Amino acid sequence: MSRINPYFLFILILLIVAGGGVLSEFLFERDANIILLGFRINIPLLIGSALVIWAEGERYLKEILSWREHNKTGLILFFVLLIYGVITGALMQFTKSKFTEPDYFYELGLSSIIDFPVYLVWNMPILISLAGILGYFRKRLKASYIFGFILLLLILLTEYYPFNFKGIVPEKQIIVPAFILLTLTIFYKVRNTYLYGGILFSAVWINVILFGTNSATVTKLIIAKNFDKWDGFIILAKEFTDYVQPAAFILITIVLLFFKRKKPEENSSTN
């Protein structure tokens, strides 16, 4: 039994996430992530997950960190690679998109491919913190998918649009809800925290390494901390610039919906 009302804790976590994102921008002119010995840590998420562990007890921490068998991970990763392969092939064949040799091709692009496992491990603190909070929502809140969507949306809004909110789906930012749906779908389909983190990181990393990002936060988290953007290996045709990356996330999400999830062992009050 939780030591605190789950809905009150949900609101408290929202306030911590929103406050952390806005204060980081206001006081330090940066996002709420820190890098410690290479490991990426999101302070509001870390505090939120600590509150969840306090509310649920040590047993919940073991539950999140325990290894659970998931025999479809390889198949999911295969479809992730297949989707990006099909998208890339279609872009090359039917549009004016083309492969390029962007700035920092060798020191950033190729080295990032070699360093992929390292950056996956370094981002695990963020992924585990997020899994801990989402797992609590799934366990204690009805319609937990909706609460998870609200949390992730607030994280993205306060990280990327502090003091300048542009609406639920800002113009040309369909990638925001696409990413949220992908994150939640992977989480609800894969009960193993580490495999969930690996699949999510892989889907985002391939997207960024192929098509690039102008987000300093994303670049520093998953490619290199000393760079603010990455142009990608593919220059997209102008008319597809805003839609290819979210389309990839949406296609992966749709494919994941066909995977049956294993029923959780613990009792859950969620839908």
Rank of each mutant, 00 (worst) to 15 (best):
S144H: 15
A203I: 02
E29I: 05
G212D: 07
A55P: 06
I64D: 03
S24Q: 06
R3D: 07
I250V: 15
L81W: 05
A131I: 01
L36Q: 03
E239G: 07
F8E: 04
I186M: 00
W54D: 02
E159L: 14
A248N: 08
M1F: 13
Y104P: 00
I76V: 12
K189H: 01
Y194E: 05
L156F: 13
L9Y: 06
T95S: 14
A50Y: 04
L195P: 00
G19F: 03
M1V: 15
G20D: 05
F201A: 00
K72W: 05
L65F: 10
K263F: 03
G232M: 02
G212C: 12
F165A: 08
Y84D: 09
R138F: 07
I76D: 00
L257A: 07
G48H: 06
F39I: 08
E29V: 12
V255D: 04
F79A: 00
Y7L: 07
F94G: 10
R30L: 04
R140C: 05
D31F: 09
E29K: 11
F233L: 14
M92A: 13
G48C: 14
F149E: 05
A90T: 14
D31G: 08
N71L: 03
L157N: 15
F211C: 11
K189Q: 02
E265S: 08
G167R: 13
A18C: 11
L157V: 15
L156Q: 15
G132I: 08
L36K: 04
I254T: 01
I34C: 09
K229T: 14
D228P: 01
I175A: 05
L81F: 15
L77A: 04
L108C: 09
D31K: 00
G148H: 03
S112T: 04
Y194T: 07
A18Q: 01
F211L: 08
V52M: 00
I47C: 14
K62V: 01
P6S: 11
L251N: 12
Y194D: 03
K142E: 14
E69S: 07
S24L: 03
T95L: 04
L81H: 09
L51N: 06
E25Y: 10
L12Y: 01
Q245L: 08
Y194Q: 03
K139P: 06
D31S: 09
P6K: 09
K139S: 06
I133A: 14
P170G: 15
G74V: 10
G197H: 05
D115F: 02
D103L: 13
S97I: 10
E25A: 07
F99M: 09
V208R: 02
W205Q: 08
T183L: 10
G197W: 01
S97T: 12
G198D: 00
I206Q: 02
L120I: 03
L157I: 15
G109C: 06
I87E: 05
Q173D: 03
V176S: 06
L127R: 03
N192Y: 09
V86A: 13
Y160S: 05
G85Q: 09
K98Y: 10
K72A: 03
R68L: 04
G19I: 01
N192R: 04
G89V: 13
T88I: 11
